[in-house]
């Protein structure tokens, strides 16, 4: 099993709205803490350390300033 990077959510807009909605009214510190808990939950759900490793690499790489 490798990391799924193609579209895998039926209704992406609804999922995105649910994510934003969960942060409504939170302070910055509370939002950061919510994100941390969410990542731990999803990481456990994935279960596969290789997939988690790929996800970490993608998140790191996409945070770098695009060249040009």
């Amino acid at each position: 099993m490798s990391l799924v990077t193609r579209r895998n959510l039926n209704d992406q807009d609804a999922a995105y709205a649910a994510l934003i909605g969960a942060h409504k009214g939170l302070s910055e510190a509370e939002s950061i803490a919510l994100n941390a808990r969410l990542i731990l939950i999803l990481m456990n759900h994935i279960g596969d350390p290789a997939v988690i490793g790929e996800a970490l690499a993608l998140a790191t790489a996409s945070g770098a300033r695009p060249a040009g």
Binding site: T5, R7, I20, S31, S62
Partner: peptide
């Protein structure tokens, strides 16, 4: 400002790296 902007900017950053 806050989570809404982080996720918006994260989506834009990921868009040139991942199809989803």
């Amino acid at each position: 400002e806050g989570a809404e902007r982080w996720f918006r900017d994260a989506t834009l950053a990921l868009a040139s790296h991942a199809e989803f």
